[in-house]
Design a protein around this nucleic acid. Structure first.
Lengths: 341, 341
DNA sequence: GGTAGCGTCGGAAACGTTTACGGTGGTGGT
DNA sequence: ACCACCACCGTAAACGTTTCCGACGCTACC
């Protein structure tokens, strides 16, 4: 109806000329170009996405896969909300659109990716919350679909990824707690095969061994990646004897449940149990006493992720894919104190 | 490359026949059909989305607009996570795909919608978190794009919507609190023009007037739609004299901040201040004492939303669009008690 | 004055599908 | 033996866009 044909007819031009004018080709009279652009604006013309994609062989759209149905392993629910913003902005400067593709966690993730890839509705994919062994990466690396993984994996293959430096975060957490005098330090990570949890534990264990701290398996807690997981962490710690004097949280949302359970038990975070966590969600600022944490700026991460996607799409296949280990700065807070007594 | 042409060549059939076989048309030999289907499976053939969309004039995709950059007015961030699941499932039975379109709240929402509509990358749109005066609805109702609004609006126009019955929720909250003996009842809603907040306040005021309770403007609190908003609510209530004996929360996440602030002040939800709220997020079960609330099953809502979209797409333009006011059941909890003394 | 060059434009093919239409061969009936 | 009919399949057009190619008119130059 309101395609380029109608526009051409109305201007008494050929559709070829109109298309060239719209796309800023040089071989069109400036006066004609203005006439076309004005008419296009007036008629509210927008090129049909399907036609353009069909002609170009690409859609100029990248898909961000979002697992639904269970809390995201990485950083809680609002993760996408804050990440997507900057990501979209960064992709826009390269002329790319962003869509979020919801993938039910109960469904087969490979089949889901396969569908997205084969139908060619997106040019590239972004997956997140990578597992230690991740079949999605194995599949995508074997296909010819450009993709970027938010999080690395032990699955072999050449692919671009950006991962949080959770190993350093955990190591430095132990060191900072130990410097305050803590020796029995508990650690909590989401259960499951998430690679982030693995890295966090690896950093924890390395630091504990290096500093000669007690290496008690009971100090390692695996709970759900949510507020409720924090409740479980607190309950487990309260039941321990001897009780650890500090805990490190490998998931943001755990802090909420931990705080409320501690306070209900008459204990204060910081004074009675030191807590050091990780934070990416601006909304978590309400915690009091405020949480000592390693802080991730999801805006910066989103921009880096966008640039990585653009790079992958621009680079000829076979070029070495970009990899990035994302550092995070420590933000002190009164939830960390020397151990009582 | 691996289009229907290659498939046809390999099978020594015409692409027309292959297409008919794949689409289950009757006029194709069953033996041939099997041959085609087997070869398609073997080659991993998937119809190109762009080609099909171009031919059909529709994309079989619906877009769910997600505002990013600020917490969603309706139900916090995890809202989409839990809604999308069932929505997607329901759309799938009608052969529709779902994508989430992130829209930065700082950008012009009309321009965003206009882009989505004109490029014809989706057949229908879903918008949520409707405002009392909502320019998006005015725009979409004036265009020819099928859409469903999650939430109604005072903006005139014929369009399909599903809205939570927050007016009844608020009215019943007041009545239940009054039945326990409460008279000074505070109410908290997100600031801004969200229609849900308006409905909630309307129900509150109607019940307060009907029951002859004190109608003090200071009892109406407007805070941010987040945990931090709950902190503000608690601080405001603690500063009041006379202090209300109960508070109703028009946003889910407020309960978290409210609880923690109350407990830090040495008050217990329920015993010292009755709280009745609203809950849709399964993860909020960690609150203790558990929250008396009106509960929304986002799965059911998502399914209804999906059906509504399918209806809108199937119904000839001009048919009366479906509208639905979504009731919510009350779930008792120890956060509601008779007022102290 | 012919021709090369340039600026500008129209024509047409192509992307991958679907589908209306027509054609083929075979079967059945009269 | 002819015709009608059916089952099956190939042909081609169409969706909206971009882009290659060629054509046209004009200027400038030899």
């Amino acid at each position: 109806m309101s395609g380029i044909r109608a526009l051409a007819r109305r201007l008494e031009l050929s559709i070829g000329t109109v298309s060239r004018a719209l796309n800023g080709r040089p071989d069109v009279n400036p006066a004609t170009r203005d006439r076309v652009l004005n008419a296009a604006r007036e008629m509210g013309y927008r090129p049909n996405q399907s036609g353009r994609a069909l002609r170009h062989g690409r859609t100029s759209t990248v898909g961000l896969v979002m697992e639904t149905g269970n809390p995201s392993t990485l950083g809680g629910d609002s993760f996408f909300m804050w990440l997507v913003d900057a990501l979209q902005e960064e992709l826009a400067v390269a002329g790319l659109d962003l869509v979020i593709l919801p993938c039910h966690s109960a469904d087969d993730p490979i089949a889901f990716l396969e569908r997205q890839v084969a139908r060619r509705a997106v040019d590239a994919l972004i997956i997140s919350a990578t597992r230690r062994q991740d079949a999605r990466i194995a599949y995508l690396a074997g296909s010819d679909t450009p993709f970027v993984a938010l999080g690395r994996s032990e699955t072999p293959g050449d692919y671009a990824w950006i991962d949080l430096d959770f190993e350093t975060v955990a190591r430095e957490s132990v060191e900072r707690l130990a410097a305050l005098g803590h020796r029995r330090i508990a650690v909590a990570v989401p259960q499951g095969d998430a690679n982030l949890a693995h890295l966090y534990l690896r950093g924890y264990r390395a630091a504990v061994a290096a500093l000669g701290l007690p290496d008690d398996p009971a100090l390692v807690l695996r709970t759900s990646a949510s507020e409720n997981g924090g409740v479980e962490v607190a309950q487990a710690i309260l039941a321990m004897d001897p009780r650890p004097t500090a805990v490190m949280l490998g998931h943001e949302m755990m802090a909420i449940g931990l705080y409320s359970t501690l306070e209900r038990a008459g204990l204060r975070p910081g004074a009675d149990l030191s807590v050091v966590g990780f934070r990416q969600n601006p909304q978590l600022g309400f915690l009091s006493p405020s949480l000592a944490c390693f802080r991730l700026d999801l805006g910066e991460l989103g921009r880096a992720l966008g640039r990585s996607v653009v790079d992958v799409l621009a680079s000829p296949a076979g070029l070495k894919p970009g990899r990035l280990i994302w550092p995070m700065g420590f933000e002190p807070g009164p939830s960390m104190e020397p151990p009582p007594l």
